[in-house]
Design a protein around this nucleic acid. Structure first.
Lengths: 236, 236
DNA sequence: AACTCCAATTGATCCGATGAATATGGTACG
DNA sequence: CGTACCATATTCATCGGATCAATTGGAGTT
């Protein structure tokens, strides 16, 4: 095994063993490099790999720190995977999201506080107001859509589940979905589905919430795979 | 934004744009560094980050290549996330796995070829033979368990779904589950659940397969969260 | 006590050199 | 002509040091 891979594993293990704890500051580069018996540039490459995994974080002039290591943080590299597979695998990612989001929405039905139900209602109102305009601001709709879904899933009681869903459709995918909705009717249908989910949550009805959430994502899936209007059909 | 982050994004974008395709060889380090206007060591740190994401791969003496970029490859960094959260978040990961594996098993009921059903049966026979010994080889059981589950989920018809499940319970988690089964009765129960899933698949009964798969993972969840026999209860 | 400013600390970036692994092309042999 | 072997060039791996830039913390001032 290479020196760098070795250093990466050593640092990882030190974290797993609790020698370095979340939020803790690591020794200075020179010191840590000597401790591991490697050159400073080599250590930097190892550190850089761990930064990419969101395990470490550096602040120039200050030091290198272990991140919070929260699932949400560590799993957010997944959105890049979703983005890079825009061409072929979008449907597969959405399928996973459908399975998880249906379940998370059902779980949230029993847990979401009344306050946040009010917020959801306001998000819906805002989105519907936006969609009624002659010039639809798709960027704003994407943001509202993201807020709506993540507010719900954040109350499913499982941080890992919420994080996976969040990253399952990356920002690029989500933006593309809404951008593809040139048909005003599709926008209306999507908003109606959102409201159906909202009503099920209001009624604290987990089963209805699950079904409406699944239906909603399924509608998105079909609008993407059904109508090949995205210019990617040329590749196998 | 830092020079390195810039380089990482540039290379990513070149891949997304198709300038660098899967399997393709990148320019030599010195050349690419000059092209991006950065020093070679800086480029190496960027490349190292992309290697950690499984986007690039280097072969000393040969060159740097773009990987296949398959979802299975890109998502396999997730298992590290699962491993690092052994202490607190195991239950949450298993919950996600339960949701996904139930669905994947149901999907596989209609798709798994007869040949692989035969293989599944053999895996079960082997595991049961192993469990009947006086000295149980837990390592071997873990391997068979992994083969059993991944053979099923690989036939769910969705590579992303299969990859996420595969990584949802990392090797460390899985090993720990089996190691925790000091009670021979628990081993027998687990094997019985495996066989129930197998029978449902044989009958091509998606609903039964889904329920038995969910039941199986749930049993594992409860054996972990119910009996705090893993020495991690000292941390909050 | 609060503020300003400077110096030490620390990561960011660059550079050049050497080592190690691989591929390639040529050469000798069958 | 084809194959096996070998020398060499190519390329990544690792190293050590130099300089730049950002942050911090304390000295000095008000």
């Amino acid at each position: 095994m290479g020196v760098i891979e070795n250093a990466i594993d050593t640092i990882k293990q030190m974290i797993i063993d609790g020698e370095f704890r979340p939020g803790q500051k690591l020794p200075v580069e020179k010191g840590l490099a000597e401790q591991l018996g490697i050159a400073r540039s080599t250590l930097r490459e190892a550190v850089r790999a761990l930064i990419a995994m969101r395990v470490l974080q550096t602040r120039q002039g200050d030091g290198t720190y272990v991140t919070s290591l929260s699932p949400a943080l560590l799993l957010d590299g997944m959105s890049f995977v979703a983005d890079i597979h825009l061409h072929a695998g979008t449907g597969e990612f959405l399928h996973v999201r459908r399975i998880l989001e249906a379940e998370a929405t059902a779980l949230a039905a029993a847990r979401i506080p009344d306050d946040d139900l009010v917020v959801l209602g306001k998000l819906l109102d805002e989105a519907e107001g936006l969609a009624a305009q002659s010039e639809i601001d798709h960027g704003q709709l994407v943001a509202l859509d993201q807020d709506f879904h993540s507010l719900i899933t954040s109350h499913c009681g499982n941080a890992v589940l919420a994080a996976v869903i969040q990253n399952m459709s990356g920002r690029t995918v989500r933006a593309r979905i809404w951008r593809g909705m040139t048909d005003p009717e599709a926008v209306q249908r999507t908003l109606a589905e959102h409201r159906a989910v909202y009503r099920a949550l209001l009624a604290r009805d987990a089963d209805r919430a699950r079904i409406h959430a699944a239906m909603h994502v399924l509608g998105v899936e079909e609008s993407l795979t059904g109508s090949r209007s995205f210019g990617d059909a040329d590749r196998e």
